[in-house]
C-alpha cells in the first residue's frame, strides 16, 4: 500500500541577495519537487522581496536566481503563496510580483497567490514538515 503523500512547506523569510539562504533554499525546493511530496512555498517577512519582478543583480556582481522563480510551475511547484501583510508593510502590491508560470489551460501568466496570515497559519497546521530558508 502506498504511503500517504507528506505535506512539506517551505517558508522564505529573508531578503534574496544579502545572504545565500534564499538561493540555496530554492535549490532544495527544486529537488524536493521531484519527489513524492506535497510541496508548498510561502514568502513572508523580507522573503517577499525575492518575488519582486525586475530584479537585476549585475551591479552586485552575483548570480541572480529570480528567473528560476519564473519556472516554478514547470518544476511542478504550484502552491506558491505570499503573505499580504509582509507585502503591504514593504510597499509592495500584487503588481510588483513576478510570474511563476502560466496556466495550463488559459496560458495566462500565474503569479503567487496573496493570502492572509490566518490562512498561512491554517496551512502550517496541516504540514508534516516546515523548512525555512
Amino acid at each position: 500500500m502506498a504511503e500517504e503523500i507528506k505535506k512539506i512547506m517551505f517558508t522564505v523569510r529573508k531578503a534574496p541577495h544579502g545572504s545565500i539562504y534564499v538561493y540555496e533554499g530554492l535549490e532544495v525546493k527544486l529537488i524536493m519537487a521531484a519527489y513524492d511530496a506535497d510541496i508548498s512555498v510561502v514568502f513572508m517577512d523580507d522573503g517577499v522581496f525575492a518575488l519582486k519582478q525586475g530584479q537585476d543583480t549585475k551591479e552586485l556582481g552575483i548570480k541572480g536566481f529570480a528567473a528560476t522563480y519564473g519556472a516554478l510551475m514547470d518544476y511542478e511547484i504550484q502552491k506558491v503563496y505570499v503573505d499580504r501583510h509582509s507585502m503591504e508593510v514593504r510597499g509592495m502590491t500584487e503588481a510588483d510580483l513576478l510570474v511563476i508560470g502560466e496556466d495550463e489551460e488559459t496560458e495566462e501568466p500565474v503569479k503567487p497567490q496573496v493570502i492572509d496570515a490566518q490562512e498561512i497559519a491554517a496551512m502550517m497546521a496541516e504540514q508534516h514538515n516546515i523548512l525555512s530558508f
Binding site: I8, K14, E27, Y35, A37, N129, L131, S132
Partner: peptide, 21 residues
C-alpha cells in the same frame, strides 16, 4: 550526498528540526 537525502529525511522522519538563522 545530495539533497535527495534531505528529502527522504523530511518525508520519513516524524519531525525535522532546523538549526540556523
Amino acid at each position: 550526498s545530495g539533497l535527495g537525502q534531505l528529502t527522504m529525511m523530511a518525508i520519513q522522519a516524524d519531525r525535522m528540526v532546523v538549526f540556523g538563522d
